[in-house]
Design a protein around this nucleic acid. Structure first.
Lengths: 184, 184
DNA sequence: ACAATTTTGTTATGATATAACAATTGAATC
DNA sequence: GATTCAATTGTTATATCATAACAAAATTGT
């Protein structure tokens, strides 16, 4: 069900248009994500309609978290309806199915690298280049559940958004402006 | 500098208009927070002007995270300027000084219970009553720094927003609708 | 008082998201 | 195939959250 070999604490790099050779083939990610989505939806009797499917693809194709209106523009280019409810409905569906995350601090949407129903969204967000890396961390997950339970709180979803400076920007920043300034 | 005895992993309850007898005197929190704010600002040569000070008070007086426009309305009632930049400037200042947090998933603002410059915002947010409890957890903090460093990422700020069902709502929910439905 | 800086006032607009209701499509049954 | 019901999409309007840009006023240091 997961599109990556299931390491316990794996990380998934999102972004880096210019250089993802060190990473993996992003097209493979998209294909896997879509396949997973199909399976999940069928299993749950939900309909991955044209606009929902295409929205998911576009989100995956984007190398950064995608804003709702950015996504809407892309959909409109392809002949889909261009009114906001179109995109928000697709996003709601995909969020509900656990196929994407919302990065709250960016008001932007990102393919879920773990396609689970656990609603965990753990992100490293670079202040400079705005690339986002999703990570998983079972120990943290367990600790948070325990901490919540200790307060009598029943945990349903977790959002962790860590901001700072990514490795690339830390390197380039000291010498010159980084190469990832463009956004789209 | 902290307004609570400095437990390692303390929790601070925000909310519960009807019942905070089990908790502590909220007025004390406000007074302490304001005193801390004064001290911090003086130390750093920053000016806690009337509108900034009153904004901070109002945020603390609110028993739930306060939206920018809610705060703006309260300020306007008291004769402050009623245009959005007024409130966003105050919020920016208070955020920058580490005196408040933004709850990203609610677009709302909350007094920082630890008045530190570490920019940690760890929250338990109830889906039902929308009360928010801030907590601190040094082990998680350390683990996140380590995890980030492992990716070459230099951590600057942390946001953890955990949603689910609080103890009160878990109890009341099973029998009847909870008593905290109103939103100010 | 004067100049420099910070803060606030003011107008306008941008960006994100939802409400409400009509029209269409899909799926299940007759 | 026609009928019915539910889910999805279209459409218009509006709510909510946030910032740009520049003018006016207040504060600080000299």
């Amino acid at each position: 069900m997961a599109q990556h070999p299931s390491h316990q604490d794996e990380s998934h790099h999102v972004g880096h248009d210019q250089d993802h050779s060190h990473d993996h083939n992003h097209n493979h990610c998209i294909d896997s994500a879509l396949a997973t989505a199909e399976t999940l939806c069928i299993e749950q009797g939900q309909r991955l309609t044209k606009v929902r499917r295409r929205a998911l693809e576009l989100i995956w194709e984007s190398h950064r978290p995608l804003g709702a209106y950015q996504l809407l523009a892309k959909l409109a280019e392809e002949g889909f309806n261009s009114a906001p409810p179109t995109v928000y409905r697709a996003l709601d569906f995909l969020l509900g199915a656990g196929l994407i995350h919302k990065v709250e601090s960016m008001n932007a949407y990102l393919g879920c690298a773990h396609a689970d129903k656990a609603h965990k969204g753990y992100f490293l967000i670079c202040d400079e280049c705005h690339n986002v890396m999703e990570f998983d961390y079972q120990d943290i997950h367990a600790a948070l559940i325990a901490k919540a339970a200790q307060q009598g709180f029943e945990l349903r979803a977790e959002t962790i958004e860590l901001t700072g400076l990514c490795a690339e920007c830390k390197a380039t920043n000291t010498s010159a402006a980084n190469t990832q300034g463009t956004r789209t």
